[in-house]
Design a protein around this nucleic acid. Structure first.
Length: 287
DNA sequence: GTCCAGGGATTCA
DNA sequence: TGAATCCATGGA
């Protein structure tokens, strides 16, 4: 990867394999918006505009320009994706998904935003999740000025913790409000630092997350995979369950426990990546 | 009106 | 242990 600048744009060349579009639309994150091929989003305190031209990723950041490290880190551009895909392609049933949707990478998100977002995602459809997350940010996020207008950061733990369940529910999060508030209050009270689980084993990180009220195996796995450097995490939602049943299940109904066993055995340290391709494939093609 | 969604807690057998 | 049931909400 070679990086140059054009005015305040960063140009990251030779990022292949990488698809900005598929990566941001594969259900990992809920705040990015696209117009005319330009994606706009907020990562931590930074507003980002990004577009892809072939094997080059163009990006600019506000208010601090040229945040090359942030871009490389968030999009996992240094992750050896070609090597991972080559290994996964040896698994026959997975080959279609890998070939049909090249360039999906696992984002490296901020853990609190990731945890909160996937609590809000419980038993919701993606457009609804996006609306609720947007409403929550609008209600509680800090304002920042950007060239695209005024935007808001994702709300802090403290901001959520001090908001009543009744007010949280104004964002249409429903029964998830008590889960979200409980998580924020516990993090604050016990001074939990979520990024510490980047240094833990997958099993430790997963079980620690499941101690949060309202966080089960699926939400814990999403947070492990999308924010805590736990690549073997394998979130099983309804789409993954269907895909696993169809590709690896045969006649009898496969239980969730077995799906995790299969993922670990067949995909190992690439399980999370395999899951992301299966998820996108299930939603766009096979089911 | 009915079913479903990047599920989890609770209740019941 | 494991299988129903309830939970809010909006789109299809």
């Amino acid at each position: 990867m070679k990086i140059t600048t054009r005015n305040d744009w960063l140009v990251l060349r030779d990022v292949a394999p990488f698809s900005l579009d598929r990566t941001l639309k594969s259900g990992q994150t809920f705040r990015w918006k696209e117009k005319d091929g330009v994606f706009e989003g907020i990562v931590r305190d930074t507003f980002i505009q990004a577009r892809q031209e072939g094997d080059a990723l163009w990006a600019r950041t506000f208010p601090v320009p040229l945040q090359r490290g942030l871009i490389e880190d968030y999009f996992s551009l240094k992750y050896p994706l070609a090597e991972a895909v080559e290994a996964l392609e040896k698994d026959g049933p997975l080959a279609d998904a890998l070939r049909t949707h090249p360039g999906i990478r696992i984002l490296r998100q901020e853990p609190w935003e990731c945890l909160a977002s996937f609590i809000l995602a419980i038993n919701k459809a993606i457009p609804q999740i996006e609306k609720t997350v947007a409403a929550l940010c609008e209600m509680l996020g800090e304002k920042i000025d950007t060239p695209g207008g005024e935007r808001r950061l994702f709300p802090t733990v403290a901001a959520v913790a001090r908001t009543s369940e009744e007010d949280l529910r104004k964002t249409k999060m429903g029964f998830r409000a008590k889960y979200l508030k409980a998580a924020a209050q516990r993090i604050q009270k016990e001074e939990i630092v979520l990024v510490q689980y980047r240094e833990s084993t997958y099993a430790q990180a997963r079980s620690a997350l499941m101690e949060f009220y309202g966080v089960g195996p699926k939400v814990a796995d999403c947070v492990c995979l999308f924010s805590l450097d736990q690549p073997e995490a394998f979130p099983v939602d309804v789409w993954i369950a269907r895909a696993m049943q169809q590709l690896y299940g045969g006649r009898r109904k496969m239980k969730e426990k077995r799906m995790h066993t299969i993922a670990q055995k067949r995909f190992g340290r690439y399980a999370g990546l395999a899951q992301q391709y299966l998820y996108h494939h299930a939603r766009t093609c096979i089911l």
